[in-house]
Design a binder for these strands. Structure first.
Lengths: 335, 335
DNA sequence: TTGAAAGCGCTACCAA
DNA sequence: TTGGTAGCGCTTTCAA
């Protein structure tokens, strides 16, 4: 920066002002800009952060980047935060709460302005780190009973119940559920819980649950789970799956077994992934606006930052609100 | 840090050493650690970076986080770099070279130790920024003719040619190609180029190419492209697709049209995505080790950093080597 | 509108 | 093994 200042014949302070875009005479500004371009100067963000006491980072933690659900959410966050000059610091927890804590600690070292986490469950260490840091936090994809700050999500249990009701309305009675195996995937467990509640409520008899393998749930979970379900309960007339991924795997397995979908057995998914719209048959599913969760989270984060800047009295508690995201059953061919 | 030092009854320097893990007497170390825990102290990475002149960041740019290809590569990079204490700074270029340049500039402000880019094509501004920064660079997923530093990838054209040869061996002659529409997706264009070369080489007559819509190629591109292909060349006996995504869409469309795969028409994909293994029929494809590209890139980056530390004479040129990643045709049911 | 000085929190370096 | 000092490259604050 000294070099730039010398070349432009101004002080470092003026260069700093040009970079920040604040009150500099147009002529001076242009001279400085020319010097910057000529030298290929790139300002050091670490020095700026240290000096000003505020970084330009926003931290985001998702369980998996490979899931289109979460990568859509990250895109939404990017869309909301990047125009405000925030740089995303993205971390992949791999559905591991210990790893989440390590990542939170590591990200906190960079003094992020705000942080977005996935889910309502975290280690006590994570909560403590976050609380101590004083950084605005938004939890996504769930509606925690005791949120750290704010939350943007929906009730996975309610969504699953809605799907059961949809299937019942369509005349299905012997409904199975594939998924919810892993303690790590709380959202999957919530969906299972919703299924169990509604099966009881509707008096559909004994629940028919096949718990699949590890998170994240992938397409390949679907086939063996369907086989297991039909082995134990051969008269099952509909299956709902914890995710469109496993629903797809199940449908392909039906095809291999010579079962028609939904003629012999109906199959429903969750998430409205691309495969649900493209598969033949198209897959009935729950649509959730993953991208919207990202943008809404971004907005909540920005609001918290604005509150911080504005009223010094704006307490953490005042920002503690939940944004409920809509979901809906998308009726397609498979159920 | 002063607070921690005071509480532990040592100097700041000793606290710094405990954090860095270097020569401190066990008793002192423990005392300091207790103080750290008690105060919930989290070191400021920006100050450390400024002081030491080196950050703990490794920058990564991929065209899209939603593609499992690239998210696998990011996982591989994480696996290689995180154990070395490097924190990934992940950016999503959205297949936009201008955006890539902006992201590179923005990341360079954080003084990353090294940077991984996707593809061989970049704006001249990007190249200049990178060259000037002096940071080790690895380009992934391609083998550039004039790499910036090092590269880890494969020839997408050669891979496509191998697929054409495979189809010819299987007796197909009237082979179409779906994809390669967007100038933005250089790897898709390379695959198209390989198809065209091999079709000529094998004397298969007029090429049958349907260029699909925008990047990234998704499942929904497959159906309309297949329709267009069969409309223009109804006697086509095999289709190769620029990606498993579109291959899947094409196969589902065949099903809707009552065409059996591969009986009436063979379909091949590219990338060995999960859907290729789970679809019925399973999809013949080109397998590329996306995760391995990530780990190999990470290793190349670490080697460059080690060289930097070691011999001061280690020039940029000395690191300029390409790592060739293997690919292979996975023969499955669809072709 | 511009400049000068102080200092952010840490680590490199040298000394004890 | 430990401590003191200097300074990293910026922004804040105040003065001109």
């Amino acid at each position: 920066m000294s070099d730039v200042a010398a070349l432009a014949g101004v002080s470092k302070m003026t260069v700093s002002r040009v970079l920040a875009g604040s009150g500099v005479a147009p002529a001076t500004r242009e001279r400085v800009q020319r010097a910057i371009d000529e030298l290929g100067y790139v300002a050091d963000a670490a020095a700026g952060a240290l000096s000003s006491g505020r970084s330009a980072f926003a931290a985001v933690l998702v369980p998996s980047l490979a899931s289109s659900n979460f990568s859509d959410t990250v895109r939404g966050l990017t869309a909301a935060l990047e125009p405000q000059g925030l740089q995303l610091l993205i971390g992949d927890t791999d559905y591991d709460l210990e790893r989440e804590e390590r990542l939170v600690r590591s990200m906190l070292r960079h003094q992020p302005r705000c942080i977005a986490l996935t889910g309502a469950q975290h280690t006590s260490g994570t909560r403590e780190l976050l609380l101590r840091s004083g950084v605005p936090v938004v939890e996504m994809w769930d509606l925690p009973t005791s949120p750290i700050d704010a939350a943007v999500g929906f009730s996975n249990a309610k969504a699953a119940r809605e799907m059961v009701r949809y299937l019942v309305e369509r005349g299905y009675r012997r409904i199975g559920f594939l998924g919810g195996a892993s303690e790590l995937d709380r959202r999957g467990l919530e969906r299972l819980k919703g299924y169990l509640q509604e099966v009881k409520m509707q008096g559909l008899g004994e629940p028919r649950v096949v718990r699949l393998g590890e998170s994240p749930i992938t397409m390949s979970h679907g086939a063996p789970a369907l086989d297991a379900l039909l082995h134990q309960w051969p008269d099952t007339d509909a299956v709902m799956c914890v995710s469109d991924m496993s629903a797809f795997g199940a449908i392909m397995q039906c095809r291999r077994r010579g079962l028609s979908v939904p003629g012999d057995i109906a199959v429903a998914g969750f998430g409205n992934f691309e495969v649900a719209a493209c598969c033949a048959p198209t897959i009935t599913t729950i649509s959730v606006d993953a991208y919207g969760i990202g943008t809404r989270t971004g907005e909540a984060l920005l609001a918290a930052l604005a509150a911080q800047d504005g009223a010094a009295g704006a307490t953490r508690a005042s920002a503690r609100k939940s944004v409920k995201i809509d979901f809906s059953v998308i009726a397609r061919e498979s159920a």
